[in-house]
């Protein structure tokens, strides 16, 4: 080790991988992964979230899974939960939609209204 810059670099690099162990208040993306969700294609959706977040070097958002919330017909369901507890529920997700949610909602704070459960219910 010849310089502090080197140390800092290792720190940043490793923190990217293990930052999720810090239990800070942060935005969470919760993917429904019960049998219904998995059958409807939730796994590729979740993987897309992980990849997109990594691509953009976003460390302060965690991706977790949850069980069935009862509206299986709208799976894959994804909830984006703000640190203050308010949440947006996206339904009938797919990898393309997931990528857009990251770009618009996570990065720029603009909710993708047309994917939300509210929009879906209106269209009925």
């Amino acid at each position: 080790m010849k310089s502090i810059a080197e140390l800092e670099e290792i720190r940043k690099r490793t923190l990217e991988q293990i930052g999720l162990r810090e239990n800070n208040e942060k935005m969470r993306i919760v993917v429904g992964m019960a049998t219904c969700g998995i059958a409807a294609g939730a796994r590729p959706v979740m993987n897309t979230f992980l990849e997109e977040l990594k691509k953009r070097n976003i460390n302060n958002v965690s991706v977790t899974m949850t069980g069935c919330i009862g509206i299986c017909r709208l799976e894959p369901i994804v909830e984006v939960i703000e640190p203050d507890g308010s949440k947006v529920t996206y339904v009938k997700m797919n990898p393309e939609k997931a990528a857009r949610v990251v770009a618009e909602h996570i990065v720029n704070g603009r909710v993708c209204i047309d994917y939300t459960i509210g929009a879906e219910e209106k269209n009925k």
Binding site: R13, Q17, L20, L50
Partner: peptide, 10 residues
């Protein structure tokens, strides 16, 4: 390096 979505600490 891989980014993992969950860590299991034992």
């Amino acid at each position: 390096m891989e980014i993992y979505r969950a860590h299991v600490l034992v």
